[in-house]
Simulated assay, not measured.
Amino acid sequence: MFEFVTDEDERGQVGIGTLIVFIAMVLVAAIAAGVLINTAGFLQSKAQETGTQSSKQVSNRLQEVATVGNVTPAGQIDEVNVTVTQAPGAGEIDLENVTVTWIGPDGTFLLNHENASQSVDDSFGTSQIKNVDGSSTVLDDPDDRFSLDFDLSTGSGDPELLDEGDEVTIKINTRAGSTTTIRFTVPESLGQQQGVEL
């Protein structure tokens, strides 16, 4: 026979439908929230990593203290010594991992430490001026001072001897990716001096 649907039955069906729609919306919102949280976490870790790398590139650099040249009897510079220390806020810097770009009147040369295994145009040496803990090539204390020694008198692939008035740019790159640029000009008159500040 015929069934009569009352107002109460209709309200019950509408309530169940609303409940199903509500549960579906809650599930979709939960999934979306999970995706957003995962994405935010990934972006945060990437941002921290990038920030750390950028910080090292800015802070882990060398600072020039003094640059001097050795004058030959013929009136040329045959050796340049650059005294360096850690820049403020810098971490440990191993000079064996440093590369130097020497830009002089006779061209551009890529130099690495004499103990490095890489093969480039030429090498530079280091000598200790002040070393708090006795590490051979590592600047790890603000009071440490090392000299980067560039011998211009040996080898055909080396930068050549410097004459009066020559200009040189030295770019020192650390393993962290920071660069220190040093520019100097040989004095117009070397006279009878044995050494000169550049």
Rank of each mutant, 00 (worst) to 15 (best):
L95K: 00
A90R: 05
T83M: 12
E96Q: 13
L95N: 06
T52I: 14
V65C: 07
W102N: 04
G125P: 08
K46S: 12
S54V: 12
Q118C: 00
D94S: 09
D106W: 08
E49N: 14
R61W: 05
P73F: 04
N97L: 08
V65A: 13
V68D: 02
S59M: 13
T50E: 15
S127I: 09
V58I: 12
V71G: 12
Q63N: 09
T50W: 15
K130Q: 13
S55W: 01
E79A: 01
G89Y: 05
S123L: 11
N97M: 06
I103F: 09
T126H: 06
V58T: 12
H113I: 06
D78Y: 03
D78T: 01
Q48R: 12
V100L: 15
T101N: 06
Q128F: 01
T85S: 15
L62S: 04
A116W: 02
T108V: 12
H113D: 13
Q53R: 02
A47Q: 14
V68T: 14
H113K: 02
Q53G: 08
T108W: 05
S123W: 01
N131W: 04
S54R: 08
V132W: 02
A90W: 06
L111S: 09
K56V: 00
N60A: 10
A74F: 03
A116D: 15
D122S: 10
N115D: 10
S119I: 02
Q128G: 04
E114S: 15
N60K: 10
V84G: 06
Q128L: 10
T67G: 01
T72I: 10
T72V: 11
F124Y: 15
N115R: 13
I77G: 00
Q128Y: 02
E114H: 02
T72F: 09
N115E: 05
L111A: 15
F109W: 09
S123E: 15
T99S: 13
V84M: 10
G89R: 03
D122K: 03
Q86D: 03
V120S: 00
T101D: 11
S135L: 08
S135K: 03
S54W: 07
Q76L: 09
A87R: 06
V120C: 00
D122A: 09
V71Q: 05
D94L: 02
N60Q: 09
K56D: 09
D122I: 03
T99D: 04
V71R: 00
S119Y: 00
S117E: 01
I129K: 07
V98I: 10
F124N: 14
D106P: 04
N97R: 13
V80A: 01
P73L: 11
I129R: 04
A47Y: 12
S135Y: 03
G104Q: 11
E49V: 06
T126W: 02
A87I: 06
Q76V: 04
G134M: 04
T101E: 12
G134V: 03
A116L: 00
P88D: 08
N70K: 15
S136E: 12
E79P: 00
G107K: 09
Q63P: 10
